[in-house]
């Protein structure tokens, strides 16, 4: 019983190698909105499963350290892999898997469930927006391979601005929630683990920089294409304003 909870939790709050299945599962969903919903709901489901097993402090140190090693390796592996991804959907899923591995770190040092939920939300929310926009991009341009047309900002400024916000939020840029959640998570981790975790911040920034190169700069070389509507852009903006408010006004009680 306990083991099956563990396995399901590691599937929904993706931890390598089960993250491979999570990633595949999300990728096979037909629409961007369905993918977005999945990355919002599944990690929360995983955290509920973690709630059902005894807290980390009840396990021997060896188990906790094992989880920390797995979480570190998983986060680093996916962050490195995101460097070469140029398809927006793939990129988002890889960075999401890398970020969600930090939830396991929080769990292993005994962080409260509320903090774990917020950590999952901090990564899940921008990933959901990015996957939703990816779906729109695929429908309108025929693919979300950002190097294909170049300079998307010239023809789809609202879509690009929304994507930029999502990517920044996903790569722990302050003042989005993931930044404060990471600070909170790392603050509880023994200092000796930090040299292994800090490169993640660099790798996420590197991956975002490479994505922006293709997304923002250069001349657009595709067919004329319609941007997302003003109402959609405002709604997406409101999602980010809400998440900013969550970060700034007490960070949802996590800080």
């Amino acid at each position: 019983m306990d083991l099956s909870f563990w396995i399901l939790a590691a599937l929904f709050v993706p931890l390598f190698p089960l993250s491979w299945i999570f990633n595949r599962l999300v990728a096979t969903l037909p629409a961007g909105s369905a993918q977005g919903l999945a990355v919002l709901v599944l990690p929360q489901l995983g955290i509920e499963l973690l709630h059902l097993i005894p807290p980390a402090l009840f396990y021997p140190a060896l188990v906790r350290h094992g989880v920390m090693v797995m979480a570190t390796a998983s986060a680093l592996l996916y962050a490195v892999r995101a460097l070469s991804a140029r398809e927006l959907g793939v990129w988002t899923r890889l960075v999401l898997c890398s970020g969600l591995a930090t939830v396991w770190l929080g769990w292993s040092v005994g962080a409260p469930m509320a903090v774990l939920r917020l950590m999952a939300l901090g990564w899940g929310l921008p990933a959901a927006v990015a996957l939703y926009l990816t779906g729109i991009l695929v429908r309108r341009v025929g693919g979300a391979y950002v190097g294909l047309h170049g300079g998307l900002v010239a023809v789809m400024p609202r879509m690009t601005a929304s994507l930029v916000l999502a990517v920044l939020a996903l790569t722990v840029t302050p003042v989005f929630p993931a930044f404060f959640m990471l600070w909170k998570g790392l603050g509880s981790v023994p200092v000796a683990w930090m040299p292994f975790w800090l490169p993640l911040i660099f790798l996420w920034g590197w991956a975002a920089g490479r994505l922006f190169q293709d997304l923002l700069f250069g001349d657009y070389r595709g067919e004329p294409v319609a941007d997302i509507g003003g109402v959609s852009a405002v709604l997406i903006g409101l999602v980010f304003v809400a998440s900013l408010a969550l970060s700034l006004v007490g960070s949802g009680g996590a800080l």
């Binding site: 300079g151 900002v153 010239a154 911040i201 660099f202 920034g205 590197w206 920089g209 490479r210 922006f212 190169q213 923002l216 700069f217 250069g218 001349d219």
Partner: peptide, 21 residues
């Protein structure tokens, strides 16, 4: 954003700053 060189060198700055963070 029309000039890829501007993006390339902005990226160099961003990555060095991120390293320094």
């Amino acid at each position: 954003h029309r000039r890829p060189a501007a993006g390339r060198y902005a990226f160099w700055t961003q990555i060095t700053y991120r390293f320094g963070d």
